[in-house]
């Protein structure tokens, strides 16, 4: 679970960065912006699930609430 999620997010970041460069060179800047946003949103969804998991574990471990 642990290491490949880092690779997944790094891969998404790299691909969006490369696509950005390509789109900027062919001066389609607005599509480049959309690609960046799409990459960001997909990564944020993954990260939010992990943060939720961390906070739930903290709640159960520390017996809060």
């Amino acid at each position: 679970m642990d290491i490949n999620i880092i690779f997944k997010i790094a891969a998404v970041g790299l691909i969006t960065a490369i696509i950005n460069q390509v789109l900027k060179k062919s001066d389609k800047d607005e599509i480049a912006m959309l690609v960046t946003l799409a990459g960001l949103v997909t990564v944020l969804i993954m990260v939010i699930n992990m943060i939720g998991q961390l906070f739930d574990t903290l709640k159960t471990v520390f017996g809060m609430y």
Binding site: I9, A10, L14, A17, G39
Partner: peptide, 12 residues
């Protein structure tokens, strides 16, 4: 690669 996802990878 000047991507905005660098800090997010650090967070993960």
């Amino acid at each position: 690669a000047k991507s905005e996802l660098a800090p997010i990878v650090a967070l993960v």
